[in-house]
């Protein structure tokens, strides 16, 4: 059965998001032959991006333009894509699982009355693989209908385009959409990056598994062993108020890649992993031997940080002959 693949290109500030190219490799992994990119936006920026896509991938691009599509908004994307994507023939509509992607993907699926499978991270035996229960369970999915909307976890596929052949065509399609009831006001920076992640060689991060707010002290003392270190945290720890949101590492927080990353009491949900997986060395300390974090870690230690970090500090001061200072 011949199936067509539509990749919805996402962009921000006039630049195509790298996740769009990751999707191209995802589709090629599925053996997709009939591939079309669809990009939505306002002229003139969207035309340049459409040409870039066609050149870098050799794939045809549909470029839907409207002055109302200058910025992303869910209802606009749903309406335009619903009109563009014909599901009379089997097709997969592939969308990056970013904050915009998962915002409109289920809307589009429901509008087209086809299934939606989200946060795909692998393909095995022609089945889509996605995580459940924070990575503890792996689900296999197969769309229950010939057509489906798929969202793909950022970072799950390589994003580089190694294509050097002739470029694809760009079809410009002015779309007539009403202004819509959504008013877009723009963007707001809500995170200050002043906890020193950029300069840090070592980041010691706390997850919910550290047990209580008091144990943040242990994390700070461990970090203080290293001359250029910073304190990170999972979203759950920030939500609990144990550390401020500026410490947050993960999809909605900071992305870091230090020489050494020490994950303390972190289970390893994909939202966190994607913010730190490019760290050179990853040490994970967790009481649960099956925690997902151990699949990413270089060194795995099955211990409780409450007892283990004091042992490390003790051993360190014994070796160096210096008592370990309490604060950093």
């Amino acid at each position: 059965m011949k199936r067509s693949f539509n990749i919805i290109a996402l962009h921000c500030d006039g630049k195509i998001l790298p996740e769009t190219y990751e999707l191209f490799n995802f589709v090629r992994d599925m053996g997709g032959e009939t591939i079309t990119f669809i990009i939505l936006g306002s002229e003139p920026h969207v035309l340049m991006m459409a040409r870039e896509l066609a050149e870098k991938t050799g794939t045809d691009v549909i470029c839907a333009t409207s002055k109302y599509l200058e910025n992303y908004y869910a209802q606009g994307y749903r309406d335009v894509l619903k009109g563009l994507v014909s599901t009379t023939d089997p097709c997969f509509i592939c969308i990056p699982h970013t904050a915009s992607g998962y915002d409109f993907a289920p809307l589009l699926a429901a509008a087209l009355n086809i299934p939606c499978i989200t946060a795909i991270e692998d393909i095995q035996d022609s089945l889509f693989i996605r995580s459940m229960f924070g990575g503890r369970i792996r689900a296999q999915a197969r769309p229950s209908a010939p057509s489906a909307v798929l969202t793909v976890q950022p970072g799950a596929w390589e994003g580089s385009a190694d294509y050097s052949g002739p470029g694809g065509t760009v079809r410009i399609l002015p779309v007539d959409i009403p202004p819509g009831k959504t008013v877009i006001h723009g963007f707001k920076k809500s995170l200050s990056h002043d906890v020193g992640f950029c300069d840090a060689e070592v980041i010691v991060s706390a997850g919910r598994g550290i047990g209580s707010e008091q144990n943040v002290t242990l994390i700070k003392r461990l970090a203080a062993l290293f001359p250029r270190s910073a304190i990170g945290a999972t979203r759950a720890v920030c939500d609990l108020g144990w550390l401020g949101y500026r410490h947050q590492i993960g999809i909605t927080g900071n992305t870091v890649s230090p020489r050494l990353y020490i994950a303390c009491g972190i289970s390893g949900a994909v939202q966190h992993i994607s913010g730190m997986k490019n760290s050179r060395i990853i040490v994970a300390i967790n009481t649960d031997r099956h925690a997902a974090i151990f699949r990413t870690a270089t060194y795995c230690i099955v211990e409780d940080i409450k007892t283990f970090i004091p042992l490390v500090l003790e051993e360190y001061s014994r070796r160096s002959g210096n008592p370990v200072n309490g604060s950093s």
Partner: peptide, 24 residues
């Protein structure tokens, strides 16, 4: 509607790849 009892998740299991990390 007809699709409302759909399910696309067809199998559950545990992650296979143990990772390449070294357990101390």
């Amino acid at each position: 509607d007809s699709l409302s009892m759909e399910r696309s998740i067809i199998g559950l299991g545990y992650p296979k790849d143990a990772g390449t990390g070294e357990f101390l």
